[in-house]
Amino acid sequence: MAVITMREALNQALREEMLRDQNVFLMGEEVAEYQGAYKVTKGLLEALGPKRVIDTPITELGFAGLGVGAAMVGLRPIIEFMTFNFSILATDQIINSAAKMLYMSGGQFKIPIVFRGPGGSAFQVSSQHSQAMESWFAYFPGLKVVMPSTPADAKGLLKTSIRDDDPVIFIEQERMYGNKGDVPEDPEFTIPLGLADVKREGTDATIVARSLMVPVALKAAEQLEKQGISCEVIDPRTIRPLDIDTIVESVKKTNRVVVAEESHPFCGVAAEISMEIMERAFDYLDAPVKRVSGVDVPMPYAKNLEALAIPDVDQLVAAVREVSYI
C-alpha cells in the first residue's frame, strides 16, 4: 500500500495494463507529448512509445469511431476524452457503434474498448465544461459505466475495465484527481465491475452516493452520527451494471434512503436507483426515497452560484433528517 493521488492511481493502472497487453493502446487529445491535459497520462509516452500512446487531432467523433473499429478486429483501445463534455461529439460512435455492434452482428463482434476521462463538475469553467454525463451512457444496454470515488477504486476498476471485453465508459471526477488514498501496489490488484462498496456502515439511514458525492456523504454521515443518526454510505462504483442488491439490503436494514448525485435530477441515475428501490424494497420503506441532486440548470460560472449548484454536506444532512422524520 502507498498513499497516492487518484491521478497517480489512474496512471499506474494505464501503465500496468499497457505493459501487460500489447494490444492496448491509448489515444486522445494531448495524451502523449503534453503528458495529459490533467497529467493522468504523464510519462506514458516515454515508457511505451508513440505507437502505443497517440496524440489525436481535435476530432472526437473520428477517433472514438476509430477506436471502435480497431476494437472490432482485436485491439483494446483506451480512448481518452480530454473531458467527457467532448464525448457528446462522439456519442454516435459510442452509442450506435460500440454499444450495439455485438448485438446487431448476432454476437460476432465484441468491442473491448474503454472511453475514459474527467467528468462531472469542474472548477469555474461554466456550462459547457462542467456537467455529469453518466445518465446518458448508462441508459444504453451494451455499455458499462464506471465512476470511481477513491484512488484505490480508480486503479482497480480501470484495470478491470481495460481487461473487460465490452465497451466501458470510465468517468473520473475532475475535482477528485488530487484526492489521496491508500492504493495497493500489486499489479494484479483489480476490482470487479458491478460490485458496490459500503464506504461506511450504519443502521438508521442509507446514503447512496457515487463519485464526487462519496466524500460529501461520508462527511454528512459523520455529522449525523453526532446527532444520533447512524448512516450507511454505499458507493455503487459501477453505474451499469448496477449492484442494486447491496443497496436494497441496506435499505431493508435502515428503512430510509437518500440518493446523492451531482448530476441533474431529471432522468438521472438517482431517479433510476430510486425506482429500483421502490420496486424491490417498497415494503421496507418508512419514508419516500429522497434525492439530492445538482440543480436543474446549466452550470454557472460565478463561484457562489456554482457552489449552490452542487449538493453539499448540509443538504445531505437535511435530507437524511427529513427521511428520518426528525
Binding site: 473491448p112 478491470t160 471485453d165 458491478g194 448496477l242 449492484d243
Partner: peptide, 18 residues
C-alpha cells in the same frame, strides 16, 4: 437477451470479472 454483453456481469458478484 444474448449478445448484449460479451462479458455479462451479475451485479454484486465478488468474484473477479472474466
Amino acid at each position: 437477451y444474448t449478445d448484449v454483453y460479451s462479458n455479462p456481469i451479475v451485479p454484486g458478484n465478488r468474484a473477479p470479472n472474466k
